[in-house]
Write a protein that binds this DNA or RNA. Structure first.
Length: 221
DNA sequence: ATCCTGGAAA
DNA sequence: TTTCCGGGAT
């Protein structure tokens, strides 16, 4: 068992299934993935609740509603003007490429779907991978700031690693398993928020401390 | 490197 | 008061 598998084994014993991504359906996952860009999930929940109340959480309504009204509905998630455009760009892609049907992605190669998603203005690699994994159920490993921080501090990766390169470090160390990838990312986010924080990491109380091999963490607080 | 933005935490 | 979010575009 390699260090990354060992990390997950210990983490799963502690956290179990975190049940990501919390949403009623894949469309809500995709919308949430855009709204959560550089934004706390709590504020995204408010924005999604407002979309639901206004009857706006569907491809047709997002296409038809005026930009200003959409922006107002998602206001709590921040960057509301930018994100209103992003939501409209996404639903336009969703209709044209998939006829508003996520299952249409089942027969498409993951790499093609990923490139296609990333061609949408407002969808970068992380958001694309959120959508691929949690909405399309494709086996891609999501990399985010928490993933990077934890990977570097545990010595799994050099600090100058690129996005795709870091994803590869995880996928090459793990079985290809959609549930595993979903829950691993959820666990990294949870640990990154509570213990492996950007400033003043709480290594002393961290449940992952037993998984460190050569006293590897760059920071022990 | 800077901008986009609200809300909570430090 | 500053910092930080489940980033991405210019």
């Amino acid at each position: 068992m390699n260090a990354i598998e060992e990390f997950y084994r210990v983490a799963f014993a502690r956290y179990g299934d975190l049940e990501w991504w919390p949403a009623d359906d894949p469309f809500e996952v995709a919308i949430g993935a855009i709204l959560t860009q550089n934004t706390s999930w709590k504020n995204v929940e408010r924005a999604i609740e407002r979309l639901k109340c206004d009857g706006l959480l569907s491809p047709n309504t997002i296409s038809d509603v005026p930009m200003e009204k959409l922006a107002e509905a998602i206001r709590p998630s921040g960057y509301y003007n930018q994100k209103a455009k992003k939501l409209k760009a996404f639903v336009e892609w969703f209709r044209e490429e998939l006829d508003c049907d996520f299952s249409a992605g089942d027969t498409m190669p993951t790499a093609h779907l990923r490139e296609s998603l990333m061609s949408v203005k407002g969808i970068g690699p992380e958001t694309a991978d959120d959508i691929l994994l949690y909405a399309f159920e494709k086996p891609v490993f999501v990399v985010d700031a928490y993933t990077y921080r934890i990977a570097v501090r545990h010595g799994w990766s050099p600090p100058d690693v690129g996005y795709d390169e870091l994803a590869e470090i995880f996928t090459s160390s793990l079985d290809e398993d959609v549930f595993l990838y979903k829950n691993f990312h959820a666990i990294l986010v949870e640990i990154g928020k509570t213990f492996c924080t950007k400033k003043a990491p709480k290594c002393v109380n961290c449940p992952m401390k037993p998984t460190l091999r050569n006293g590897t963490p760059l920071v022990i607080v």
